[in-house]
Design a protein around this nucleic acid. Structure first.
Length: 375
RNA sequence: GGAGGGGUACCCAAGUGGCCAAAGGGAGCAGACUGUAAAUCUGCCGGCGUAAGCCUUCGGAGGUUCAAAUCCUCCCCCCUCCA
């Protein structure tokens, strides 16, 4: 199967199971992609990631451009060789940093000027330059530069941002046309929280020859219900034959909700960041390992999990490691949270294949659905 | 025995007449985190109360003052130096 080929093998309602080919191997979808911003999934080794079944990880163009620098990475043989990770890598464009580092940047139709959060130096990012940097990095999937707007952005500004994102998408493809190398390029749909603008963005982005399409700009602080509404509005409009990637999402329930709307790929910092901050995902729900109730708890973190952390240590020990700020805490917690996410995605794929995805969806809803706020 | 320094909340530590239930840290307890400027951030942290407020508290006892952690007297304890 040539790089870029996406094959759907099973469907269960809107949910799809499939596989996406890259030169560094195939990824099973629906997939969760652990985030490794600085060419490292914090606290884990590549071997750890292989052990828990990660098939693809993320890196970040903006961060790697600033440090250690894309030329250096290229000189050292590209990201895969540099980080000793021989499976697929998706690099995010820096579009999210346009949003999250908004205080440090200036946006024009031409591109973005960033003030480095590391040393204050100025850097000029354009859609073209971001593609060049990703080519230097040698990732398997490159994301185009986009503009991700805040939740409270008005219609007019969101409309402009959709126009900009489309213009940038076209410029990205001119820099790296489909088929010009082994790297795939994904376009990104924006449109904030306005259904008409989401539709417009889908029409414009889906018309371009991308290998996959992403939904950006969700989970930026909006209520969950609104996120789901926009997702339900947007995902079905995307072409069915290309992989659909919901960027930056989310909680275990968000993933399953996304799959239910036909999403194939996800990434999110939650499992890794929360692991470092003591929040762990289990088959019984979310727990905070620092809570006093675990002080003498000799049970496995999640008795239903077969990861190294759960096979080996008690909750009492994990609590101790966390409260003592022992380095092992970060590693064991991260290992477990990602193992939980990857295990969940394996179950999602199996259930789609057997036509029982709805049951799994119900189960996960039962475990993670938060009580609605009554007003 | 002499000289000096010091005893403040669970711990460390500021405060030296009213704005002090008492700064800051730590510990403790709880919460947040969604394409990672995050091993970070927020809240609570003497007692009762929803609150206004009341009560108890700055080594101990007594005193001065409208008012004392803060000034005075005596006592107890700790540290440093000298003998």
């Amino acid at each position: 199967m040539p790089a870029g080929q996406f094959q759907i093998t099973h469907t269960d309602g809107p949910a799809r199971r499939g596989r996406l080919q890259t030169v560094h191997g195939e990824i099973q979808t629906p997939a969760f992609m652990p985030v490794g911003t600085q060419a490292s999934v914090k606290s884990l080794s590549p071997q750890d990631l292989v052990d828990i079944g990660a098939e693809i990880i993320l890196g970040n163009t903006y961060h790697l451009y600033l440090r250690p620098g894309h030329e250096l990475v290229a000189q050292l043989g590209g990201l895969h060789s540099f980080a000793s990770w021989d499976r697929p890598i998706l690099t995010d464009s820096g579009g999210y940093q346009v949003f999250s580092l908004s205080a440090l940047r200036k946006l024009t139709s031409e591109g973005v000027e960033f003030t480095s959060h590391i040393d204050g130096s100025r850097h000029w990012f354009t859609p073209e330059r971001v593609m060049d940097v990703q080519v230097s990095l040698g990732s398997d999937i490159m994301m185009v530069l986009d503009e991700c707007v805040a939740y409270d952005t008005n219609w007019d500004d969101t409309r402009k941002s959709v126009g900009l994102t489309t213009d940038w998408a076209k410029r990205s493809l001119q820099t790296y046309p489909l088929g010009s190398g082994n790297q795939l390029v994904f376009g990104i749909v924006q449109g904030g929280f306005y259904p008409d603008l989401r539709t417009r963005s889908v029409e414009e982005i889906a018309a371009l020859p991308f290998s996959g399409l992403a939904i950006g700009g969700l989970s930026v602080g909006e209520p969950k219900e609104i996120m789901l509404d926009i997702l339900a509005h947007t995902a079905p409009q995307l072409p069915g034959d290309k992989p659909r990637y919901l960027m930056g999402v989310g909680t275990p329930l968000d993933l399953v909700d996304g799959v239910a709307h036909g999403v194939d790929m996800f990434d999110c910092v939650l499992p890794t960041r929360n692991a470092r901050n003591g929040t762990l995902y289990t088959s019984q729900g979310k727990i905070n390992i620092k809570r006093q109730e675990f002080r003498t708890d000799e049970n496995a973190l999640d008795p239903a999990c077969d990861c190294y952390t759960c096979r080996t240590f008690s909750r009492a020990y994990l609590r101790h490691l966390y409260t003592a700020r022992e380095l092992l805490a970060y590693r064991l917690n991260t290992l477990h949270n990602l193992a939980y996410y990857l295990q969940l995605m394996r179950r999602v794929r199996e259930n789609i294949a057997t036509g029982t995805f709805a049951e799994l969806h119900r189960e996960i809803r039962g475990v993670f659905e938060e009580p609605r706020e009554s007003r």
